[in-house]
Design a protein around this nucleic acid. Structure first.
Lengths: 140, 140
DNA sequence: CTGCCTGCAAATAGTTTGCAAGTTA
DNA sequence: TAACTTGCAAACTATTTGCAGGCAG
């Protein structure tokens, strides 16, 4: 389910300069059906653009995160690298296989629960992240 | 709600040598009502034991995590440091204030939802972590 | 042309590791 | 004493930053 994304339009909307590096980063992220690390994005792109630097990827991912184009997950991979995913309209969570590392998207059914938390704790709830860990069909 | 913990008993049960450093780390963690970073544990302990090294804290937190004494959270603080908490019998989640950083424990009501995920995806679910972000009473 | 962006190199910061000396049982 | 743990210093790895040149608008 690759996302159909117009990277130039998105960059325009957010008031960011439309550079090739930025468009390529967004395009790669929209083609993948899972969160990516800065390094994996870099590796996928450096064939086409040998001048691209990892620091540029990091820099833009941070800018995208500030502009709510991208979300920095609080799941990290085994190498302690951050994972990033495009923010798209449908909110979802992640189901992670503890053995092979497969990540699936799962739907969110937490609205009632969140309302209860909000009332009980006198908080204004803004966001939440759920990660479910288990063994996938092949690994269990 | 500091946990009443016998660190020596716990270390015994897990087959770990009962050193002062380990006991002190566990005691500090049981006194705190929130997840701690390696550095904050180190800072709290180095007054009493000036020889203690940060690497020793890290080393033991990792050993504790392997032995299921401690849990490494996938929330990180602003400095990108890992947070650790004692694993205690009652499962719970975290409610984090986005402004002041306060972390509260909240109860888990996800059993039905998890069962549904398990069935829908053909996974065997082993664990899950929810973090809810918002603004606390004082910050909102 | 003007300011934002990138490549490059070097710095930061969190965490890990090798080793010799010290401690636990 | 034998095995395990710690202090110490140094390495490692992910991420960030300063700067000069390059590119988008």
């Amino acid at each position: 389910m690759a996302i159909n994304l117009s990277s130039t339009k998105l960059l325009d909307e957010k008031g960011l300069l439309k550079t090739n590096q930025r468009k390529e980063i967004l395009n790669i992220m929209s083609l993948e059906d899972k969160p990516l690390t800065a390094k994996s994005i870099y590796n996928k792109l450096k064939n086409r653009n040998p001048h691209l630097k990892l620091s540029t990827v990091y820099r833009n991912l941070n800018i995208f995160a500030e502009k709510d184009i991208v979300r920095k997950l609080n799941i990290r991979n085994d190498s302690n690298e951050n994972l990033f995913e495009l923010i798209i309209k449908d909110h979802h969570h992640h189901l992670v296989c503890m053995k092979c590392g497969e990540i699936k998207d799962i739907k969110c059914l937490l609205d009632d629960y969140l309302k209860e938390i909000e009332d009980n704790n006198n908080y204004l709830i803004k966001d939440h992240r759920l990660t479910v860990y288990g063994l996938c069909e092949d690994c269990k």
